[in-house]
Design a protein around this nucleic acid. Structure first.
Length: 292
DNA sequence: CATAGATCCTGTATGC
DNA sequence: TGCATACAGGATCTAT
């Protein structure tokens, strides 16, 4: 569910409210939510207890906090992915676990605790070693295969364009491919395509460099605007760390607007099947690419 | 290697 | 009301 702007909103909330805390207690209510930890939920908690959360990082939809002990990095991080329905909720200490609370973290001498809630359980947490990148950054090993973040200042748009122009897949599939550019999901892909007036099935290798730069610029623009509004809450699933929905849904031009008039030309937005989900577009502004 | 499709899971909305 | 079906913001594995 959450895409870059929603995960970034969560990251900022964690930074504001849970920087420097030391883990006191961990309760794993759903072992499935702990990924790649053969030793089990109890061991997961034991490994975290006493460790400090100095700051929060993100790449695409992956969020992590490096782990520290007495001010020194342990060389590992706690990695979190919200999947389709994950929530990182900061609640007063002692708050009863909600129906979908899968993991609970309490902190030493701190009046707030962190509840990881996840209805569909496609999300999860794991402890993962940090590895150095060529540019000097240290990121979790399980995030290494993810491309640079769409809003990372170090992102080289020309590199991304060159990659896109080498591929035959439809442009929306490519935008959603986190190994090409990280952070774009189904909502913001459709919004970027609407802004740049591009049909989702246009093969990457049939698009011009200029058009691709325009499309990537639109994606960055729409996600930046969404971050400023705390993300998109299309239904009750996405909320920030305080359980508050984001306001970007009122700004959506394509996603979820089937049957509503295009805000540019008035034609009705349509919904089409796309990769086990949906693609929304304006039939006039975003016509299929002509063959031949 | 690149791509398309199936799959993991729970909950809600819709239609008959 | 009951039941069946479709659909939901994602990542990953498999088959081709």
């Amino acid at each position: 569910m959450p895409e870059l702007p929603e995960v970034e909103t969560v990251r900022r909330g964690l930074t504001d409210r849970l920087t420097g805390v030391v883990v006191a207690e961990v309760e794993v209510r759903a072992p499935r939510s702990i990924r790649e930890h053969a030793a089990g939920g109890k061991d997961f908690g034991r490994r975290l207890r006493g460790l400090q959360f100095p700051w929060y990082s993100r790449r695409g939809k992956f969020l992590w906090v490096p782990l520290a002990e007495a001010g020194e990095s342990t060389g590992e991080a706690l990695v979190m992915h919200l999947g389709m329905s994950g929530q990182a909720l900061i609640v007063p200490s002692g708050t009863a676990a909600g129906r979908h609370c899968r993991v609970r973290l309490a902190f030493e001498g701190h009046p707030w605790e962190l509840h990881f809630a996840d209805q569909r359980m496609f999300g999860g947490m794991m402890i993962n070693e940090l590895v150095s990148q060529p540019d000097g950054e240290r990121i979790p090993a399980r995030v290494e295969h993810i491309a640079r973040d769409a809003l990372d200042p170090k992102l080289d748009l020309e590199d991304v364009v060159a990659d896109l122009r080498r591929r035959s897949a439809g442009i929306k599939s490519l935008l959603l491919n986190q190994q090409v550019i990280a952070g774009i999901g189904n909502i913001y892909a459709d919004e970027a395509l609407w802004r740049a007036r591009v049909h989702h099935a246009t093969p990457g290798n049939r698009m011009s460099r200029v058009k691709l730069l325009e499309l990537l610029g639109a994606a960055q623009e729409v996600m930046s605007e969404a971050v400023a509004l705390g993300g998109t809450s299309f239904d009750a699933q996405y909320v920030d760390v305080d359980g508050v929905p984001g306001w970007f849904s009122v700004e959506l031009n394509a996603y979820g607007r089937q049957g509503d008039p295009c805000r540019r030309c008035g034609r009705l937005i349509i919904r089409e099947a796309f990769a086990n989900r949906s693609a929304f577009r304006c039939p006039r502004c975003q016509p299929p690419r002509k063959v031949g």
